[in-house]
Design a protein around this nucleic acid. Structure first.
Lengths: 193, 193, 193, 193
DNA sequence: GATGAATGAGAGTTCATTCAT
DNA sequence: CATGAATGAACTCTCATTCAT
């Protein structure tokens, strides 16, 4: 009984550390981009020695992957809140809002998201698959390979406008967000026909 | 007298050299991306010593900028061929075709374009300005700051789908191209109203 | 009273631990060589944390020394079995057999021996002293400093052929062993005259 | 004509550098052993920046190989001086002298030899092949595989006594050298029968 | 005792850039 | 102009060792 606590403490310390390190990595990725980011910079940002980094992550890529995983989880959680089965009898605008808004919130809260989204095929593919799913539910009659095409383009559009949203604030940020939704609506309305 | 000839020859040789070096740079940027590309690799690709590179370009960035300039020129030439003042009485589809098709041709012919387009704000801004111009001519009543917004998003969308077009061939490439045009038409039609 | 028991248990446990750790060290030394072996690797091989290693050995060197000591003991035991005072009235071949065979058995059974034998002057010197002793008993009239020289060369020869014996198996191993004995006999016969 | 000189100068500079770097490497290998030697130490010993090292050698191993090659050449040259076809009608002692003496001279003059000889299978094998050759010429009736065995053991013996020769000076050095020859003679006489 | 996170110096290696030739 | 050797700071990653728990 006591013994189930002790290991937990150790793990807890480790997991806290991991979260802390990933946080630092996200900051550095955001500031420099994934390719230009260095492990030393991440270590410094985490106020930790380089060796500590390597106790948890064998290399830079693995940090990126862990971060990507974390973001995917966050996306799932955020989108699950407003989704459900109501993809069908609902206006397209609502579906778009319920996809885009939490995604942007996560990107704003996690500045590491955008550089990873550019870099990680895995992360992009995972998001594409979700969008593909939603399209499948809403427009079941569509051809799967065409659906994949549309999902891919949809995600690319999101990724394309995202940097503008992140680079701005206030009214301008809102405008870009509105514009993003406008593009998506126009594009996806065109599809449904 | 001799001096007016020799310099010309020198300049001519120099420009040939520059073109050759930029070609090599484009190849390396295409293969590795701008950040990962190394000057040594560019020198090797040009079959030239690193020192020679620095005789023409003070640093890596300046190579990128020179390349960007070159691409902008190519864009101008290509788009001038089919444009003119006929932005007005013409269907939107035609305008889009005359913008997108030559751009994609250039990107396919110059594999260094895409990495630079991601990297160089200057290149992207220049293209945004052209699109802004066209919109201004076609929809003069639109508010300039909103026009700039639309132009920016338009270019971002192009940049977003471009990698998919470049990464694929044949039918898939055509499909992505068609999809890109579809997005742009849907978005810009929405605007014009 | 309780206190005389507990410490013993503790010591017993400690010695078992030490044996276990030295075993792991031997394996790693054998696989990587002393210099390339890492304490982390030893800890992992012992299924123990690095900290535990340092509870018993202040540093890497001390592990090597403890292992060397252990091997020296094993050598003593093994050679005591067939030795005694019968160094005198006995053919040289027998003496060589009774020295070489147990030594090789120990080396085969303890793969950590060879790397340490190359590394540890102390281990080599101890063996040299034993050989010196035997020569002294068999050829008492020999000059001590010359005797030391011969003992040193004898041990070096053994150490030189040993890797070949350990690197091979079956017939080839036997051949190298026979060759080793042949060298030693030829050399030492030459001496006795 | 002038053009055949200019490139030579460049190459000459490079080759002089290479010789200089290999010299430094030899010193460091001699002082620390191959495994413990570091590229930074070699660079420092050559009074050169680490980068310069890597302009000529892609890694530590390649330095070792280049050095080994150089030593093999030196061995060839040295042994060619006193050898010829007179392996046959000549006393064994003479053959041994003509093999061992130049080898030891080289080892004394090139302190990098010994550590490499321990490390490089390639170097050892090359020397084994030479010895094999000589045995083949002198004792043609011997079975090739047994000949190889003998050559291997012979070289191992040389390598085994070598450190003692290098670690000592003056009379002691001479004694070890004499002892080495004694071992070899005794062993090889035993063979010829 | 045992753990494993933490350290930090240092290893090998790279690369933009400079400079003597 | 061209060369390629030279630089040195910076990078990724390792490892003997320490220390809080």
């Amino acid at each position: 009984m006591v013994e189930t606590v002790k290991p937990r403490r150790r793990q807890a310390r480790g997991e806290r550390r991991i979260a802390q390190l990933l946080d630092a990595a996200a900051k550095v990725f955001a500031a420099e981009g994934y390719v230009a980011a260095t492990m030393n910079a991440v270590a410094a940002a985490a106020e930790v020695s380089p060796g500590t980094l390597y106790q948890f992550f064998p290399n830079k890529e693995s940090m990126a992957e862990a971060l990507a995983e974390q973001y995917l989880d966050a996306l799932s959680v955020a989108q699950a809140r407003g989704e459900g089965a109501e993809v069908l009898g609902v206006p397209l605008d609502d579906v778009i809002n319920r996809m885009v808004d939490p995604a942007i919130e996560i990107c704003l809260a996690n500045p590491g998201f955008e550089p990873l989204f550019s870099w990680s095929d895995r992360l992009r593919t995972a998001v594409v698959e979700r969008v593909d799913d939603i399209i499948a539910r809403r427009v079941p009659e569509i051809d799967p390979s065409r659906r994949r095409l549309i999902a891919t383009v949809t995600v690319r559009i999101f990724a394309a406008v995202l940097p503008q949203i992140l680079a701005t604030t206030g009214r301008e940020q809102l405008e870009y967000t509105r514009e993003l939704k406008r593009v998506l609506r126009a594009y996806l309305l065109d599809i449904s026909d």
